[in-house]
Amino acid sequence: MENPIISIRNLNLYFEKQHVLKNINIEIPHNKVTVILGPSGCGKTTLLKTLNRLVDLHDHVKISGKIMLDDKDILVPNIDVTGIRKKMGLLSQKPSPLPMTIFNNVAYGLRINGLRGKRKLMPLVEKHLREANLWDEVKDRLRDPASRLSIGQQQRLCLARGLAVNPEIILADEPTSALDPISSTVIEQQFAELKKHYTIVMVTHVLRQARRIADHIVFMYLGEVIEQGPAREFFNNPKEQKTRDYLKGAFN
């Protein structure tokens, strides 16, 4: 692949003695939607959390290998972790708004980057809420606590908040699995729009969703990468037996 934005080399991860990621090698293309596919428990979430070093929060994690981002290995111990995280927004499975107002949730992302003052913040808050297709629903209630929004709205708020940090990459961990069909569709459409400016890495175990939005696919099974490549090739002409079984719905 030419100039992948992220390339993962020989990544191994253990939780205590459990070998969760097994010798992972992945290349993630620029400004495309890369979908990480695989049955639940195969290590997709762990892989995403390794990308932005959220696994640091856990006890007893052992990692080896490299993750190259802009030609720098982000797994070396003394790297600027907050800087890496700012480059990657994360949308988790269950939306997790911050304990503050709708406005402040989005402004939080802006303030992290040093922006101050309501007059500067307001237009940007609006811009990112529009990017997440939430503005029209919340423009009259920006002072309400974020916890009062519906789950689908909360997820879009989290997207807006993530975009406010101005990342290059959006990591999304089954971002629609807790949402109603309409909110799911909105999120999917936003991703198709956002990939013009962002690299998107999305985890899912829903095949239909992967078919709808993936440009590139990484298929994982029990902690290993079985097959990866352009989506069309993956779906039309899978090389591995396990992939064919999976596409037929053999394990889900």
């Binding site: 959390k49 932005n52 959220l54 907050t82 994360l90 988790s92 989290c158 908040r161």
Partner: peptide
């Protein structure tokens, strides 16, 4: 405090 809340705050690049 739910771990998910900490994770979402950290993943924004908070110190």
């Amino acid at each position: 405090v739910p771990l998910s809340l900490l994770e979402s705050a950290f993943s924004l690049g908070s110190t």
